[in-house]
């Protein structure tokens, strides 16, 4: 043991305890020192599936059952105060892993601490996720859009129906990875005569 480490041990033992709420902790290399991670682990324990840090952005993977509770906990927490919901969306993980199929992503923001936090809940196709609308009314449209694009069902959502696509859209959910870029259906093209016949391409499996 070198001198330096003994000095540091001495210092840490006798100096004042470090401020665990310091802003540095949010961006510390050790992701477990992130106050939100620490508090969430303390409160939810095994419901926290994973914690990921990439490019200074922290992501907490949570079991879908506890997704709303965790968000509400972080929102009402006195020191964390993730009062603002920035975004709700989803990622189709079809090509990246086997199960669960989707990641529902909620992006929280703490106005007091000026920190973002990403909450992810992995759900399978058809598995419901608790809606955030009871907590943030503004999540209404964001969740409708997520439903519209991915077909993820949000429980307790007051008005879960298509928002960007037409109400009678019957072609599935376009942002899923198995949805072809040009859609499933052939649409008639009006007033145009196709001079070049359609050839199947490798990328989409359809005519271009």
């Amino acid at each position: 043991m070198s001198d330096e480490t003994t000095i540091q041990e001495f210092r840490s033992a006798y100096s004042e305890p470090e401020d665990i709420w310091a802003r540095d902790n949010y961006f510390h290399d050790d992701v477990e020192r992130h106050p939100a991670v620490r508090e969430a682990r303390a409160a939810f324990g095994p419901a926290i599936v994973d914690v990921v840090r990439f490019r200074n952005e922290t992501t907490i993977h949570v079991q879908p059952k506890y997704y709303r509770e965790l968000c509400n906990y972080l929102r009402t927490h006195e020191r964390l105060a993730f009062v603002a919901l920035t975004d709700v969306t989803a990622v189709d993980m079809l090509k990246l892993r086997t199960t669960p199929r989707f990641d529902v992503v909620a992006l929280l923001y703490s106005i007091d601490n000026r920190v973002r936090l990403r909450i992810k809940a992995g759900v399978d196709d058809g598995e419901p996720v608790p809606s955030l609308v009871p907590i943030w009314p503004g999540a209404n449209w964001l969740e409708r859009e997520t439903f519209d694009m991915f077909g993820i069902v949000f429980e307790d959502h007051p008005n879960l129906k298509r928002i960007l696509l037409a109400d009678d859209w019957d072609e599935g959910f376009p942002l899923r990875k198995d949805y072809p870029l040009r859609g499933w259906k052939e649409y008639p093209s009006y007033n145009t005569e196709r001079m070049v016949p359609r050839t199947r391409t490798r990328w989409t499996g359809r005519g271009v």
Partner: peptide
């Protein structure tokens, strides 16, 4: 707040490209 959420799977095409457009949320 105009946010862009990009997921990369290591290829040259974004795996997920999400636009958090401010007026969509504000219009709600």
């Amino acid at each position: 707040e105009n946010g862009y959420y990009v997921v990369s799977d290591g290829t040259s095409i974004p795996y997920r490209f999400r636009i958090r457009s401010p007026d969509f949320v504000n219009l709600g």
